[in-house]
Computed example of a mutant assay.
Amino acid sequence: MPGRLQHRSALITGAGSGIGLESSILFAQEGANILLVDVNFENAEKASKQVSERFPNVKAIPFKADVSKEDEVKAAVDLAVKEFGRLDIMFNNAGIMHSEDDNALNTEESIWDLTMNINLKGVWWGCKYAILAMRQNPTDEAKGLHTGGSIINTASFVAIMGAATPQLAYTASKGAVLAMTRELAMVHAREGIRLNSLCPGPLKTPLLMDFLNTDEKKQRRLIHLPMGRFGEAVELANAALFLASGESSYITGTDFKVDGGLSSAYVTAIGEPALPPPASLVNRS
């Protein structure tokens, strides 16, 4: 039975770890060729090798790029089109959460600028060059391929509600990603180019765990989570797969929240034991 992304190609930024790595694995499992982009080429190369060993029938190509630099994002998109013949899926996932990002009084301008350049400008560049590429996609009725594609931008639950731990630049950047995604979705809907934001809740990834570097900070997050646990990167990858696939063909301009109920909670069941994530998700070979 063909995979959900058979004959399609994807570019994933921040593909060397976390959500990006797990999405690369799932996309390849469903038949997509993938350009794995990361600012750390060693991580991209390791991830690419991992994908290729598990799914030898798809192409998994590593590429180094700093998404805050327009020429490097363009080069990544150009390479994907050159290698795969088209770009069907753009997952603008790369981002940072700087440990010195704080409130309005304590956050340095340099931290603000760095965060905006990567988290917001990087998504802008990714959208721009993906849209240009997707407009040129050839139609192949036999394979179900048409002009257009799916662009997924990683935002955050903090784009919708305030965070208990101050991280002003990060929160502002993700709010802007949400607004930009909505507008681009409206502008390009008639071209068959869908744009959606993926809004993760707190995840057990190196990015967040490095930021929540004390037990106190971790507990300030966990106390607000109805499920009582941090999410797993693969749980977000499953959501990204849905947005990338034809199963979401009538979905554009959405804020897809995958947050364990956080954004819907007023109070949580304090004292109740937290259920662990499904073993099938976290104990994969």
Rank of each mutant, 00 (worst) to 15 (best):
W124N: 13
G148R: 02
S110Y: 13
V177L: 03
L145M: 10
L114C: 15
V123N: 02
K121F: 09
W112D: 03
Q136R: 15
A176F: 07
N117V: 13
Q167S: 15
A172K: 08
I193T: 01
R190A: 13
G175S: 00
I152S: 00
G144N: 05
F157Y: 11
T139C: 07
A130H: 05
S150L: 08
H146T: 14
T139D: 04
M116P: 05
G175V: 01
T181W: 02
E191N: 02
I193F: 00
M186V: 15
S173I: 06
S173K: 11
T147E: 13
L132F: 13
G162M: 01
M134P: 07
T139K: 07
A189H: 12
W125L: 13
F157E: 10
G148P: 06
R135M: 11
G148Q: 04
E183D: 11
R190H: 10
G148K: 02
K121D: 03
A189Q: 13
E108L: 11
W124C: 11
A169I: 05
Y129N: 08
I152M: 03
E141G: 11
K143Q: 12
G162V: 05
A179W: 08
T147A: 14
T171M: 08
V158Q: 00
S156H: 05
F157W: 09
T147P: 10
N137S: 05
S173F: 07
I152E: 00
V187A: 14
I151M: 06
A172E: 05
E183K: 06
G192E: 01
A179S: 14
A164H: 09
L184K: 10
N137G: 00
L178W: 09
A176M: 09
A130V: 06
T171P: 03
R182Y: 10
V177M: 01
R182D: 08
F157D: 01
T181S: 09
T154I: 02
S110N: 12
L120T: 09
K121T: 14
A159H: 00
W124F: 15
A130S: 09
Y129P: 03
L132Y: 13
S150Y: 02
T115V: 05
V187Y: 12
A176H: 01
M134S: 08
M116E: 10
R135L: 15
G144I: 04
K128H: 01
V187M: 12
T154L: 02
N117L: 12
I160G: 04
E141Y: 10
R135G: 08
G149M: 06
I151N: 05
I118M: 04
M161D: 05
A130M: 04
G192W: 06
A172C: 14
A169V: 00
R190S: 12
T115S: 01
V177G: 00
W124K: 13
S110K: 15
T171I: 11
M161Y: 05
D140W: 03
H188F: 15
G149L: 04
Y129V: 09
I193W: 06
A133I: 03
I160L: 13
N117S: 15
V187T: 14
T115C: 01
W124E: 13
S110A: 12
